[in-house]
Design a protein around this nucleic acid. Sequence first.
DNA 1: GAAAATCTGTTGAATTTTCAACAAACGGAG
DNA 2: CTCCGTTTGTTGAAAATTCAACAGATTTTC
Lengths: 219, 219
Amino acid sequence: MKKYLSVLKNCPLFYGIREENLFTMLSCLGARVESFDKKYTVFAEGSPARYIGIVLSGSVQILQGDYYGNRSILSHMKESDVFAEAFACAELPSLPISVVANEPSEIMLIECSHILHTCNNNCGFHQQLIFNLMKDLASKTILFHQKIEVVSQRTTRDKIMTYLSQEAKKRGSNSFDIPYDRQELADYLEIDRSGLSAEIGKLKKEGIIESHKNHFELL
Amino acid sequence: MKKYLSVLKNCPLFYGIREENLFTMLSCLGARVESFDKKYTVFAEGSPARYIGIVLSGSVQILQGDYYGNRSILSHMKESDVFAEAFACAELPSLPISVVANEPSEIMLIECSHILHTCNNNCGFHQQLIFNLMKDLASKTILFHQKIEVVSQRTTRDKIMTYLSQEAKKRGSNSFDIPYDRQELADYLEIDRSGLSAEIGKLKKEGIIESHKNHFELL
DNA sequence: GAAAATCTGTTGAATTTTCAACAAACGGAG
DNA sequence: CTCCGTTTGTTGAAAATTCAACAGATTTTC
């Protein structure tokens, strides 16, 4: 597990935990690591919402299944990101989303109740973890908020531009890669793929953006 | 302030705080109460995100302003609900939303830093409040999640039905009132008002729902 | 390196949504 | 009770999105 030290140090859940205590704490929490190949399911929709996931390597997508198989991508989680924590913390009986590996990935799983309720060893780090969870949930709320801002746009063009502007702002640069291919971007923006391709073509022709594959640039 | 005891006891932020300690704690936190007439602004978009709001009486709407004045309703908050906590907890420099009173309302304002950082009196309730905030933020995430599920639907009809189903589930009844008039419902669902009216008409004609003004029934 | 599978851009037709305008219904003020 | 402002439902035309189908490009597999 040592090889994940740098990833774990960047994980918002472990902010303020001293390096020499990290692995003791993890074993006390019963953390374990599992590997998933591309397209394999980490959490299935409807399964119990007991675990918090942390991406150690690779990346995963949070998916929401519609009435009838209409895939909708909620977000993309990369190294050091925490996922499914809201459902576990809110103690929902079952998960309303599924989590799927986007590439071969290693995932750390922690049972949420081990964090929320102090253990018999009376470890001192629970308060810090709960504080960190609170911070993390606050930023997740803001993340969802941004997704709502995007899908609230009425036109395909406005959705694309709102999304690209958000990404540019996050990266602090007008030139960046996105983690989605065309179909996935359409699933995130909740629009038709062919309409997305067409609109990106127009935006390029009009000199508003430049793009090659999943690299984009705002002009 | 005593008259708000029952409202405050229902507020998720104060879960587990003993009644006899509540008001001492509130004064220690520097909580204050302000009144707002209908349509008055509680928090303006762009203002500093320092305060957590709690609805003591009345109700407020959380609004997001588009590029060009396209109003979008994020959510409706009623008695005992907490709002703007995510932005304050995440220590955003400024609010990305505005909060407007939906009717004459009384709002309790608490500076978030007073909750997050232990005070010089060394009060013992900070840990409980942080835990409560964490829980509250988890359920807020789920609330936004539901809003995303609604606006992710591609058609007007599916948006309406997804929203009504969610409400029915929350209330535990197929017969319920919604807190929005037609224009506001359209702003929440991110659709055209006239299209909304037309679609509600169709759903009634087809015997799928029954409705009179803001009362709805799923059949 | 060739074949197979997947991804992307393009098109036109069908469908749906938006927009603008208006009249009926409703609600509050005097 | 009546007037006036607001809300709601309806309509048809304009605009936008979705859908289906296909061909070229790219990537993966063996």
